[in-house]
Computed example of a mutant assay.
Amino acid sequence: MSKQQNKPGAIPNKLVDLFVSDILQKNGISKQAIKGKITAEKKQAIMELVEDLSKQVDAFVNKNTASK
């Protein structure tokens, strides 16, 4: 397991998968339609974006928890 999955308050990967799937479905995009069309660079950029957002959320949650 990754460090984020073990840390309390971290966003589980399943939750992220659910949100992404929901957004794609709402926009009429299926996994089959995009499979093979995403370049390695785009995949890496998406992974980095998700990691950065996760860090920001963790920092926000920790800040609010510390201030209480």
Rank of each mutant, 00 (worst) to 15 (best):
I11C: 02
P12W: 03
S54A: 13
K31P: 04
I23T: 08
K3R: 12
K63N: 12
L18F: 07
I29N: 09
Q5Y: 01
Q5V: 02
S54G: 14
K42S: 10
A45M: 11
P8E: 05
S21H: 06
D17P: 00
S67T: 13
S2E: 10
L53W: 02
T39F: 02
Q5C: 00
K35T: 06
G28S: 10
L15Y: 09
E41Y: 06
Q56C: 05
V20S: 11
G9N: 13
D52H: 11
V61S: 15
S30H: 02
L53T: 02
D52T: 10
E51N: 15
E51D: 15
S54T: 10
L53K: 14
A10M: 00
K63Q: 13
K43M: 05
N6H: 07
D22Q: 08
A40L: 12
T65S: 11
Q44T: 13
S21L: 08
L24E: 03
L18M: 09
M47F: 06
G28C: 04
Q4A: 14
S54F: 04
E41W: 03
N6E: 12
I38N: 02
E48R: 15
Q4N: 12
Q56M: 11
K3P: 01
N6S: 14
N6P: 01
Q5I: 01
Q44M: 13
I38K: 02
S2F: 07
N27Q: 13
S2G: 12
